[in-house]
Design a protein around this nucleic acid. Structure first.
Length: 852
DNA sequence: CGTATGCATGTTAGT
DNA sequence: CTAACATGCATACGA
């Protein structure tokens, strides 16, 4: 007998000595091997990958790990843990497919470490084996036929598996269906024939459940579902496999499992997003010490409509038809619901005809929704308490879900309320999420049961017990658990418009990405810059746009010697480089041409461990400061200008505020899109302290360059205007001041023809078309605007800019520009930069259209 | 006139 | 391409 250590740390027996008798296990369709602990009755799956194919519709040809259909060849990418591996390793492996399922009905699920001290083990009973299912269904049928009791006789029976005495009998039965020796599966594959509850008059009949055995490789027979019959083949859906794989990543620290329906009728219909994600701890907690068992049915993320005042909660069709009483009339049935506090809710479960189909809704949910303070983005979970047949209507607040990502421990007796988190990048396209979530963050309330979970206060998790109209009308369908890919989970939060919004966390990450991007922007190589001086500061002017380079760290020794450090992409060792070197995005030691003796990756690092540590630490701190100052400035920014800055904020993708800023188009940047690398969009967030006055980062350099160009052009145009005005003054047409205003008004007009996504080359073209001497322009540009204005006789503007700071014509803008001192505390704010670019471009446009 | 209701329609994900 | 679903909208209803 091969014994393995029970990984259930809640096992009442000595965890080190409790064992699992493999003889008493049974093969799973996943290819794994389920076993029971002698002592705690918890089942674990022993993982067997790759060399075991589990059945699909057409046979045993699907890799249990990757989900690929194989033709007798092992998938080399899969991890293989032989069932014969010693040391219990296979029990601690977070397997891919093994995560696919937990058999609720057996109440066997036990994650590896409830105390959470270990990050290694989560043991899952595999997705319900059809053979188990067949037994279960058979038992269910038997129970149903004998007792006629509604509810989950199957569950009730299987719950007994936690009792030692029951195990033997059951396992004996399992053996009948699941020859242990054949871990590839038994020679039969089971399909289910389930008839939904049918009503006859007032009486609701229980579903007839028939376990049907059939030879392998035979297509499962369809079954009738009355008027709603469907052909359901309990095949392992690929998405399920993928889900399991994906979920592995998070499963280490996140025990919330999505549990696909076990039951064949809905197994292939229910989208993963509706799979209930409830931890086993939660299940146990809810069921308490009673004999009742909570069966997660499905869950739904509330849409705006669901959570709105209209009070209609759209139910997933498959769920409604599978788990709720069948209704033939659109009026449907009332459902009585009561929460843990005894408060009772009554919903009307009904449907609307829709495109030859039905649209199921729960009506009258507003009071409940409001009572729970649920909002769009929050999740409502429907479960059932068996054998009573009560419905459990749980909810999870979407608020602050991300905060719990790190949680890996589930203290005994508390809810494991790790949220389903929003995938970072993936969320962006899933939008997996998000204004709704943000809204709920803002308005998150405290829910009764959240108090139960002091360790997880960030996520409210509550349960309501519902009884379906007082009648036991459920048809005994049992979802089995499974991890679900987070991306899928949140895919459909909100409507299409909301899908354009991103979670604050995502936005923040996105913002960081932007900032990281800044670090990667480098002056174009092999392009000699021309040096210009503005306000006593020398700037390098490049004719070509910045390029992406490898990120490096600049340091300065006490001696004043500057150094640049970069990490080899191959060996990850840090190499010292000259400060003026620009590395390609991908760089390795072999390309370290500046080294005295060109090192190879095998060579020692240029830094001692201590130096490296301090280098990285310094870099990290710098980054932190950058982030902090960015956030601070963003907040300051937001509070100081609640109206006008939304656009630029959106352009930056900065949604660090409480409201969900949209990446969508803005009026100022009509063609801006995420990922846009136009000059506006690559600007750093505004705020003081972002960049030092002497900062020579590419953004600052670009900004300065733009500023200079702008000023040059402005002066050029001014001088032209002046000439015109002087001519006009001869005829006394307009006053000098009016002419000045006019010139600015023209700027204003030109702004409307802005193309912010102009091609970088465009500027060069513009510059090349300049008829003015570059040297003279540079000289002019070097002068402060005030000087320039004085020189050009625009004294009124000079005085204006001193006096007026609140005028919202264009003057202040110019003033601000003129006052920009790069030797002061910051680079230009984003808005100013933006404005400059606009003006610059508009001027260019205007110049291009200017017949003169 | 405000709200509730039922249906229609547009969008999206899944196949 | 289609089913599902979120939501818009017209109508009904009641205060």
């Amino acid at each position: 007998m091969d014994s393995k250590v029970c990984m259930n740390q809640q096992c009442t027996s000595s965890s080190s000595s409790s064992s699992i008798d493999l003889k008493r296990g049974w093969p799973l369709r996943s290819g794994g091997f389920a076993t029971l602990c002698h002592h705690c009755g918890i089942a674990y799956e022993q993982l067997v990958f790759c060399d075991k194919f589990h059945s699909n519709d057409s046979g045993w040809r699907e890799c249990t790990t990757c989900g690929k259909t194989l033709t007798g060849e092992k998938n080399k990418d899969c991890r293989v843990f032989s069932a014969d591996d010693g040391g219990g390793k296979q029990f601690t492996t977070v397997g891919s497919q093994s995560n696919v399922g937990i058999t609720d009905k057996m109440k066997l699920v036990q994650f590896g470490d409830d105390a959470g001290s270990s990050d290694q083990s989560q043991l899952f009973l595999s997705q319900t084996d059809d053979r188990i299912e067949s037994l279960g269904q058979r038992k269910m049928k038997e129970n149903f036929l004998t007792s006629g009791e509604f509810g989950s006789p199957f569950l009730s029976v299987l719950n007994q598996t936690s009792v030692e005495a029951a195990q033997n009998a059951q396992l004996n039965e399992y053996k009948e269906y699941m020859p242990i020796k054949d871990t590839h599966g038994s020679s039969v594959q089971t399909n289910l024939t389930i008839s939904p509850p049918a009503t006859s008059g007032d009486k609701i009949f229980l579903p007839a459940v028939v376990a049907e055995e059939r030879p392998l490789n035979k297509k499962s027979s369809s079954f009738s579902q009355g008027s709603r019959s469907r052909h359901l083949l309990p095949k392992p859906v690929k998405s399920i496999m993928a889900a399991g794989l994906e979920a592995n990543v998070s499963s280490l620290t996140q025990l919330r499992v999505a549990r696909p329906p076990v039951e064949g009728r809905i197994k292939n219909q229910l989208l993963p997003r509706y799979w209930p994600r409830i931890t086993d701890q939660e299940l146990r907690q809810i069921s308490g010490d009673s004999n009742s068992t909570v069966v997660p049915l499905f869950e739904k993320v509330l849409s705006a409509s669901d959570a709105g005042r209209i009070g209609r909660l759209v139910l997933p069709k498959a769920c409604a038809e599978a788990y709720f009483p069948p209704i033939s009339q659109p009026e449907g049935l009332p459902l009585r619901i009561q929460d843990v506090q005894g408060k009772e809710w009554v919903f009307q479960f009904r449907f609307w005809p829709n495109n030859n189909s039905r649209m199921y809704v729960l009506e009258g949910v507003t009071p409940c929704i409001q009572s729970m303070q649920l909002q769009a983005g929050d999740t409502v979970t429907f479960s059932r308490m068996d054998p009573e047949g009560k419905l459990l209507m749980g909810f999870r607040k979407a608020s602050l879900m991300q905060d719990n990502k790190h949680l890996s421990s589930i203290p005994k007796g508390s809810f494991s309320s790790e949220p389903f988190f929003l995938p970072g990048a993936d969320n962006l396209h899933s939008a997996n999420s998000q204004s709704a979530l943000l809204d709920s963050v803002k308005g998150s309330g405290v829910f009764p049961l959240s108090a139960l979970s002091k360790h997880f206060s960030a996520v409210e998790f509550g349960w309501h017990i519902a009884e379906m109209n007082g009648e036991k009308t459920l048809d005994g369908i049992f979802p089995s658990p499974m991890l679900v890919p987070e991306r899928k989970r949140s895919r459909n939060i909100g409507s299409k418009s909301k899908r354009l919004l991103i979670d604050s966390q995502d936005a923040f990450e996105l913002k960081l990405s932007w900032e990281e991007l800044q670090d990667m922007l480098c002056p174009p190589p092999c392009v000699k810059p021309s040096t210009v001086a503005i306000e006593d500061h020398e700037f390098e002017e490049y004719d070509q746009p910045p390029v992406f380079g490898k990120k490096s760290i600049f340091t300065m020794r006490q001696s004043g010697e500057q150094e640049q450090w970069a990490q080899c992409d191959s060996c990850l060792k840090w190499r010292r480089l000259p400060v003026n070197v620009l590395l390609p995005p991908k760089w390795t030691c072999q390309e370290h041409t500046w080294a005295l003796s060109r090192p190879s990756c095998s060579g020692p690092e240029d830094l001692s461990p201590h130096e490296l540590e301090s280098l990285l630490k310094m870099s990290k701190e710098l980054k932190k400061q950058k982030i902090a100052s960015g956030l601070k400035s963003a907040h300051e920014h937001e509070s100081s200008d609640p109206d006008g800055l939304g656009n630029s904020k959106a352009v930056r993708g900065d949604t660090s505020g409480t409201s969900a800023a949209s990446i969508a188009t803005t009026t100022k940047h009509p063609r801006h899109r995420p990922g846009c690398s136009c000059i506006v969009c690559i600007q750093p967030p505004s705020g003081k302290g972002k960049h030092k006055p002497t900062c020579t980062c590419n953004v600052c350099m670009t900004v300065k360059r733009r500023f200079k160009t702008l000023m040059m052009r402005k002066k050029k145009r001014q001088s032209e205007r002046e000439a015109e005005i002087a001519q006009r003054n001869k005829f006394d047409w307009v006053s000098k001041e009016e002419a000045e205003v006019e010139s600015y008004q023209q700027l204003e007009i030109g702004k409307e023809q802005l193309d912010l996504n102009c091609h970088p080359d465009r500027e060069n073209l513009q510059q090349s078309s300049s008829r003015v001497s570059m040297v003279s322009l540079l000289q002019e540009a070097s002068l402060p605007l005030q000087t320039y204005l004085k020189q050009n006789g625009l004294t009124s503007l000079v005085s204006d800019q001193r006096v007026s700071s609140g005028s919202n014509v264009l003057l202040p803008q110019v003033t601000r520009e003129s006052e920009l001192q790069f030797d002061e505390d910051q680079c230009l704010s984003h808005e100013i930069q933006e404005q400059e670019v606009k003006e610059e471009l508009s001027e260019t446009d205007q110049a291009g259209n200017d017949p003169s």
